[in-house]
Design a protein around this nucleic acid. Structure first.
Lengths: 127, 127
DNA sequence: CAACTACATTACCATCTGGTCATGCAGTTA
DNA sequence: TAACTGCATGACCAGATGGTAATGTAGTTG
């Protein structure tokens, strides 16, 4: 049940992974989730949280953002189920609840390196 | 050379994939790329292009967006190296040049299903 | 209870962004 | 060359978004 896009992806003649034409409604939800990750401040927060659970104050220290800002971003991340919150006394402990966050960043980062390499190769042969 | 984040990811005690603390500069670039994907219109375009090369007019037809809008989005996608352009006579043929696009959407879609399943499970036991 | 702490929330602003219309431009055809 | 086509670009506007300061709130400590 509930499988609009979990059918196995196929590979076209160019070797590109091809999801089976996702319906617009699903694409909207995917875009929404990309949007949450499309912010340097939130990525910094997630990057810290990937190393382990943190309180808001700790995140403020480690990211350099101010408290209101961190809380705002954490609220967004929590609404999108990217992070979890555990309250204990005065403190709120946040942690990454979506294991795909690390993978997504790794993939993006990998592409950045590929592009940098291509750029370097072009400069190398072009001069 | 050029490896700021290509070191093998480790796994913490919670089993979450953990990239080794990416530097802010890299996080900014990753966010930038997420931002390009964080738009339903662009995802619709990419979703069509994943099925194969298309002209701008074909994309206009298949996405329902108007021509100026499609061209604008294609320009953005091209600047970020998500798509390639091949000009032939009056036509401009676009195609997906970044193989990770499909994978990223698959991962996001997978999480949507997981969340939907969790939600369904909660509703099932909760009533 | 009063003061304090950690965090959430609100209001506000500057900025950015997507959609649209109009226009520009290169290539084709008659 | 004139008219047409496919596409890109610029100008403009409405709506959304991030940063910040101020305030609210729950929990702790004296």
């Amino acid at each position: 049940m509930i499988s609009m896009c979990n059918s196995l992806p196929t590979v076209d003649h160019h070797g590109i992974l091809m999801p089976h034409s996702l319906p617009p409604e699903i694409l909207d939800q995917i875009a929404e989730r990309f949007r949450v990750l499309a912010e340097p401040a939130r990525l910094r927060i997630l990057n810290v949280l990937l190393a382990g659970e943190r309180t808001v104050s700790e995140l403020v220290e480690e990211t350099g953002l101010n408290q209101a800002n961190v809380s705002k971003h954490l609220g967004l991340l929590r609404n999108s189920s990217f992070v979890d919150r555990r309250k204990e006394g005065l403190y709120a402990y946040y942690s990454v609840s979506d294991p795909s966050v690390g993978v997504l960043c790794e993939i993006m980062c990998g592409r950045l390196e590929e592009q940098a390499a291509e750029q370097a190769a072009l400069l190398g042969t072009g001069s």
